[in-house]
Each structure stands twice: as C-alpha cells, then as structure tokens.
Amino acid sequence: MTDVTASPIAGSSPEDRPMITISHLSKSFGETQVLKDINLTVHKSEVVCLIGPSGSGKSTLLRCLNFLESYEAGEVRMEGRLVGYTEGFPRRKMKNRELRALRREVGMVFQHFNLWPHMTAMENVREALVQVKGLPLEEATAKAEAMLTRVGLADRMHAHPSRLSGGQQQRVAIARVVAMEPHVILFDEPTSALDPELVGEVLQVMKDLAADGMTMVVVTHEMGFAANVADRVAFLDGGHIVEDGPPRQVFHESSEPRVRQFLQTYHERNSF
C-alpha cells in the first residue's frame, strides 16, 4: 500500500486543492468486496458522473463520500479533510460533532427523495437551516422560500410531499440541500424513481446548478446528462473504476469491452 497517511496538501494553496480526493478506497459488505482500490479526484466546480451496471458499486462509492457508509481501507478526503476517521494510525472513527460539521458541507440527493412527509415543502427546506445552521426562523423561512422559487416551486411551497409529483418532490429535495450552501452535492440516481416525463425538470435544475459552478458527483443512468453536462465520466464495474475521462473519450473512444458492451445496451434500448 502506498503512503496514504501523509498529508496530501503540502505545498498546495486552498484554491487548487482538489475538492474530493479518493485514494485506494476499498469497502466490503461481509465477505463481498464491493469497492476495490478506487482512485478518483474531483476538482472544484467539476461535474463527475459515475455510470455502470447495477451492483457495480457506484452508489456505495457515493455513500462513502459523506460516510453514510464506512470504508475499511484507503481514504476519502473532502477539501483535504479525512472523511470519517481521525488522522494518524491506527485510525479511529471521527467524533460525531466533526462528522456533522463535515456533512454540513456535503449535500446529498437521494433516489427516493426522502422528504419528511409531516412537513410542507417549505418546512422541509427550512428544517435544516434552523436545526443545523441555527438560523432564526424568519430568516430561514425567507431563504427556504427563495430556494423553492429558484427550483420553480413558488406556488407549491405549502403543499405536503404527498401532494407533489415525483419531479416536484425531487426539486424540493434539491432545494433542501442547496439551501445549506454545500461545497459539493452528491446525487444518488436522482431521476431513477421518476416517470419518464418528469425526468427533464429535475435534470434542468441540475444543469442550472452545474452552470452556477457547483461541484457535483452524480450516480446516474441518464447517459444524455452524462454526455452533455459532465466534465468527466467514470465507469465502474465489479467495484473497479474501469474507465475515467471526459465524456467523449468514455462514450466514443473507449477500447474497454465492458464499457462498449454497457453502452451498446443503452443504444439498443433507446433506438426504436
């Protein structure tokens, strides 16, 4: 194993320090190793899409980035800070308070939205501003309303999630995350649970975020989004990153048979 305990940021200014550095990351569920020696760097304002067949480890990789999943070997660093563990050896789990501080800067959007059903759209967005950031109620309310307006839901603010379409719910979930002003947003298959006609409105919000310079890591099956919006695409298979590069390279120039075969099934499905 290479030297992963040394500080990776010596001699670099905060400006050109990578947003996320993943090095030699490995993770197992029991006997099954789901991530094998993953290396990936994400820079500020980059949009990186993780694609690949189901069970390839994309979602697990994403969930390691904010430590919703723990990992055994290697490391994940967010703006230089080790995620989930204290520096030094043998490493110990990070204190809860530190982990919370770290998570405050890493937003996450889930496949199934995970809105809280007992609160309105506005209250869903406001809740973390009050509970986590400690904003006064009025200020938090104003901010929540501004965020919902930004994702095109000004007229649905006081509806409960059960009264919203899937696309609207996912936009509330995105507003809830963006309101916290995170440095990175992780998207875990944000459009996979949506009816096809509702996918577009969510992708549009994500495109706007990317255009605003948000750093994003997106697990997705939307190849169009990956091809048009991503700066880089990483293809995972069997817990390995098989291919990693600009979309054009991965989609059109890859010599890796697994990548070609995976994309072939997409072309077949989408040409009718």
């Binding site: 904010n66 919703l68 809860n96 919370r100 501080a101 998570r103 405050r104 890493v106 937003g107 996450m108 889930f110 199934h112 995970n114 809105l115 809280w116 059903p117 007992h118 809740e127 973390a128 509970q131 986590v132 979930a173 809830r176 995350v177 916290m180």
Partner: peptide
C-alpha cells in the same frame, strides 16, 4: 422509511434532533 433519518443525517442533523424533529412526530 430508513431514508428519512438518513436524509437528516446527511444534512448534518444531530441524533437528538433527528429523534425530536423527524422520527417521533411521525
């Protein structure tokens, strides 16, 4: 659903506020 607590965790909620604001009211 497990995801309700997880969403709060990912936003930086403390264990106490997750119980108080998300789980117990539901």
């Amino acid at each position: 659903p497990h995801g309700h607590g997880e969403a709060a965790l990912a936003l930086g909620f403390s264990e106490g506020s997750i119980w108080r604001r998300i789980l117990l009211p539901q």
